[in-house]
Simulated assay, not measured.
Amino acid sequence: MNDLILKKTTLIIFCQIPKEIGVVEAATMSVNPSTAYRMLKDFVQLSAGDTVIQNGANSAAGQNVIQLCKVWGLISVNIVRDRPNIDELKIFLKNLGATHILTEQELSKTDIFKSKAVSKAKLALNCVGGKSAVEILRQLDHKGVMVTYGGMSREPVTLPTSALIFKDISARGFWMSRWTKEHQGTQEQEIMQRDIAQLLIDGKLRAPVHKLLPLRLYQEAIKNTLNAKGFTGLKYIFDFQGLDSST
């Protein structure tokens, strides 16, 4: 009976996803690509040449933000934490389409905004919180919006009073699960899924760095994902193929 249910579930899912899309891409397209898509579409009216700044740019969602910005002609300023392999990481993000990559320390010293080499950001995407959130908020233009969708530092988001009063900055929150629940079966969801699927087929969106694990090794994924240092460097995806009662 369980085998029958599993086969039916797989059939339903695969009927909705083009066969040209790989298993990993299919498994993640409703999560990270959709999160990036909605945040870039729903909070600020962006046009080609506008600037988006984000922290946690090497995260799975951040990688999708970079690629969508490239597709839509947006300038992306991408902030990451310093680490031993920072040069390697910058090359990787650059190859994804990132316009600028800065460490958190470099952001506090950069003059790309003051010199107007890059226009002030209309949208800031925050998945870290704490000081990192404040630093990207400082780079927002008047009436800019910061969207928080995570809190990896486990520190609160603090908004400077001056940014609220003199720049009329807005702070919003986003949760993909809530959006999906509220828009299930709508034309808006259908359009997004179609757009993402086509970008995957065209090779303009790539799956994040990942590791496929059989479900019996779930402890490895949990242990590394909950690592307070946050330098896992990949996304864990459970592989249910071959799953049986002994697994």
Rank of each mutant, 00 (worst) to 15 (best):
F174T: 08
V157P: 01
S170R: 09
T158L: 15
Q193W: 03
V147C: 10
F166T: 10
A171S: 15
Q187K: 05
P160C: 14
I165L: 08
P156A: 09
G150T: 13
A163N: 13
T161K: 08
T186P: 06
W175P: 10
D168N: 10
R178D: 13
L200Y: 04
G173M: 12
T158G: 12
D168V: 03
M152I: 11
V147I: 14
M176R: 12
M192D: 02
Q198L: 01
G151E: 01
R178L: 11
K181I: 11
M176V: 15
Q193P: 00
G151C: 04
M176T: 14
K167H: 07
T180L: 13
F174Q: 07
I196G: 03
K181E: 07
A171V: 15
S170E: 11
I196V: 07
T180Y: 07
F174C: 13
Q193R: 06
F174G: 07
S162H: 07
D195M: 04
V157F: 09
A171C: 15
E155D: 06
I191A: 03
I169H: 11
Q184T: 06
I196A: 03
M152N: 08
S153V: 10
G173D: 10
Y149W: 14
V147Q: 05
Y149S: 09
Q187I: 02
G185D: 04
V157K: 02
I196L: 13
L200H: 01
I191L: 01
Y149P: 04
R154G: 03
F174A: 09
Q187V: 07
T148F: 11
Q184W: 09
Q198N: 03
I196R: 02
R172F: 01
Q184C: 08
G150H: 14
I201D: 11
T186R: 12
L164H: 14
P160I: 09
K167L: 00
M152R: 12
H183S: 08
S177R: 14
I169E: 04
K167I: 00
E188G: 00
P160Q: 14
Q193N: 10
I165R: 05
D195F: 06
P160R: 10
M192I: 05
M176Q: 13
S170P: 05
P160W: 12
E182A: 04
T161E: 06
S153F: 04
G150K: 14
Q184D: 12
M152S: 09
I191E: 04
E188H: 01
P156M: 06
E182G: 01
